[in-house]
Write a protein that binds this DNA or RNA. Structure first.
Lengths: 182, 182
DNA sequence: GTGTCCATGTAAACTGTTACATGATTAG
DNA sequence: CTAATCATGTAACAGTTTACATGGACAC
């Protein structure tokens, strides 16, 4: 049973959204896909090379004035086909998040009450920040990509983030209350 | 900047919940911590060895009648201290789930409509199953561990799973409708 | 002169999964 | 007789992060 490398496809997919360098792929990832997929440069650059090796992308090296040299990557027709095939391929696995907060909560003892409350309020704050970040991205997409058809799918992934984050924030508030009453 | 190994602490923590063998740790993980932490045997057995090396746990080998030999692990006072320190230590990182469904949605094109709807209905179904699993665990905890003080924390982690899963299910339904109307 | 943005890359370390290996007992 | 449960473990591989290395431009 071989496993697909989804990060490879994520990077391939980003080549279709106007990102053509490792640097801009990283930026886009951090800004728009951050809540459901992350990558580091240590993955991006080797993967781009690999994509070229597999003929799913091509490179062009450009010298820029007053800026470092840049390598521009472009998806090939073969790459587009591979991307679509991956998009349409069925999925079996439900995502499993690793949640350090819940792990610590699970192993807490009544005497850890104070630190628990502190963890929860930090968590709640981070969730609020995340929620606000989503709203900012939403507005950015609506104003910059209103014409782009694919942008509606981007908004859907964002909606997922907003809904689940809202639920998590509500949980934080309820749980803080519960622990307060212990 | 060194990183903590949370799985090590998760396994250490499970030694305090009545699990004393690699096998029973795996079972408990799959049944109760599955929605926020997963481990494979390939991690459990080496980690247990490591815990003994670091004097956070001890082993006792027991020959069982009509069953294979068993190694029983017990947390040491030093281990308990390490566990509590880890539980109380602050957390900076908000969890990042890798969501293959959202990744595919993000890179979808209008012509992928059919496969998208199929993905979403599968996802929704899996989320329902997960939700029902949570309800079963909840009842199990309430009937088997009603007296155990820590069980209240277990129920809180479960509540998190239920709330976020419910939000995800609602998102699925809304998104299916949206795509239907395209 | 300090920090941030632009820009690319590698090597080592770490985390985690999968496949393999073994074997007895018990329930259907 | 077949599958599941109990029970332990390792080696190879895959995926990912971190630290390191480099360096110009530009704003404060």
């Amino acid at each position: 049973m071989r496993k697909e490398n989804h990060t490879k496809h994520a990077i391939l997919g980003l080549l279709t959204t106007g990102c053509h360098s490792g640097y801009s792929i990283k930026q886009m990832m951090d800004r728009s896909l951050n809540h459901f997929w992350k990558v580091s440069y240590g993955q991006i650059y080797p993967t781009l090379k690999q994509l070229v090796d597999e003929e799913l992308a091509t490179v062009e090296e450009t010298a820029q004035e007053k800026k470092p040299d840049k390598k521009e990557y472009f998806i090939t027709p073969k790459g587009k086909k591979a991307l679509q095939q991956w998009v349409q391929a069925p999925i079996q696995e439900i995502p499993a998040e690793k949640n350090e907060w819940l792990l610590k909560l699970f192993f807490s003892q009544p005497e850890d009450r104070e630190s628990l409350l502190s963890h929860l309020s930090t968590y709640s704050q981070k969730l609020h920040e995340r929620f606000q970040a989503y709203e900012a991205i939403e507005q950015m997409i609506e104003s910059n990509y209103a014409d782009k058809q694919e942008a509606q799918f981007w908004l859907m992934t964002l909606d997922y983030g907003q809904r689940t984050t809202r639920a998590a924030i509500e949980w934080c508030e309820c749980t803080i209350e519960k622990i307060d009453q212990l």
